[in-house]
Design a protein around this nucleic acid. Structure first.
Lengths: 237, 237
DNA sequence: ACTCGGTAAATTGCATACATACAAGCTATT
DNA sequence: AATAGCTTGTATGTATGCAATTTACCGAGT
């Protein structure tokens, strides 16, 4: 009946922190979120309840709950009674997102400069080295992934709960578009330099410098991305 | 059967923008959100699906969907399989929230200074006058409400979609705690002065000044609130 | 040929019924 | 008497069925 083969949802090897509910709706929420963030579901794409339910081998109920949950994050749009779609952001909205992320990453970096443990500083420096390696080996996929880990580590090092989570949320929100900019010529090179500045400010425990550097980094990234997208023919956007 | 009388959900007189879905789950989401924000449902309080369903005269399904939606906003916490509660923030989390709001309100004010229409500037000035009146008449409830409208108007005047919505979201998130601080001695007086600074910067179309003033305003507010809450006996928090 | 209207199909929204997991209380055993 | 295990009860999670609305398709009229 199901034309597409069933997808095995989150069969993660139960990491130590298994406090998570482990319910179908929750797993679905994660899976769908990842699929959107990774671009497997394109912005604007229609999300058919029954099709998703069939593909994941569950009923419509947990699917609906997962989609509702994602809609509050902004990753999914509910259209009255006409189903839900993967959220599609306009260029002006993208600009706003980066403006916001710039501020929030700045805050995270500020706190990280004040609170990062020596261990975390070491790990940051290590990731930075890995990032440079991935650039030298010209491996954009690795670059993208290591870059994400670098930023995530800064969030962790900020030793905040709410702020870190909100920042991650915005990051996820722009992720579907963000990947494109990584492959822009010169982008990776610029990133290395900007990360270096952030990293140094954190190592020096200089909150203001860290905030400024992180904030600037994201703003530049946003400019590049929106320039890129604006250069695309309207149909593709 | 239902021990408590049924509550009439959103019977709003269909404002012009009736593009909204008008579905039970959506209405419930709004109603519950308002109840939490207005303090009718206290932080930490248990949310019983069946009880809510009965009180609103609907089945559990839309209730669950509404609660799921709110959980992604952070207003509601899902506790494994043991139901959901109104989110309760720790003091450190509250501090983070205000730190974030400070940055976001600053951004909104910055854009408002650049983009506010003359009409909006007039309305802001008008609301400011009303705020002063409510202070003189010693009407904290009116003060609270007018203050909210003042800030909302700034969000509107920023002419942003995403940023304004996110800022409102954080505002709603802290609202359950925020009300307390309004009644702190001197708080209302201070607010007037800080609003005056924001207002003047917007009228002068000075983005940097507006950003600074708005940011500072929220930070001060946050300090007062957390001081106040920290002074409470742990049981009440 | 194009548009307008109506009807049918499909999809979403809601309700109810069923399954499952957690909790509390009781009993039995040490 | 205390603790451990079982049992029962309650509340959450999931599935399915039905109702309502939207969309798409087809035919008729201009």
């Amino acid at each position: 009946m199901a034309t597409k083969e069933q997808i095995k949802i989150n069969d993660q090897p139960k990491i130590s922190k298994q406090s998570k509910p482990r319910t179908r709706a929750e797993d679905l929420r994660n899976s769908l979120e990842n699929m959107i963030v990774d671009g497997l579901l394109a912005p604007g794409e229609k999300l058919d309840e029954m099709e998703i339910a069939e593909r994941f081998g569950v009923s419509r109920t947990p699917v609906r709950e997962a989609l509702r949950a994602l809609s509050s994050t902004g990753l999914v749009e509910v259209k009255g009674r006409r189903g839900m779609t993967v959220a599609a952001a306009s260029i002006s909205t993208l600009l706003e997102m980066f403006e916001m992320m710039s501020a929030m990453e700045g805050l995270c970096a500020k706190f990280a400069a004040r609170r990062a443990t020596p261990q975390q500083k070491r790990e940051l420096r290590e990731l930075h080295a890995e990032l440079i390696s991935s650039l030298e080996e010209n491996d954009p996929d690795a670059f993208y992934e290591i870059n994400a880990r670098f930023h995530n580590l800064i969030y962790d090092a900020s030793h905040t709960e709410f702020l870190a989570e909100q920042t991650r949320a915005v990051r996820r929100r722009v992720a579907p578009y963000r990947r494109h900019v990584t492959f822009q010529p010169g982008q990776m090179q610029d990133t290395i330099g900007e990360h270096e500045a952030i990293l140094r400010a954190i190592e020096d425990a200089d909150p203001a410098a860290a905030q400024g550097a992180a904030s600037k980094h994201i703003l530049l990234l946003g400019d590049n991305l929106t320039d890129f997208i604006a250069s695309l023919p309207p149909g593709i956007r």
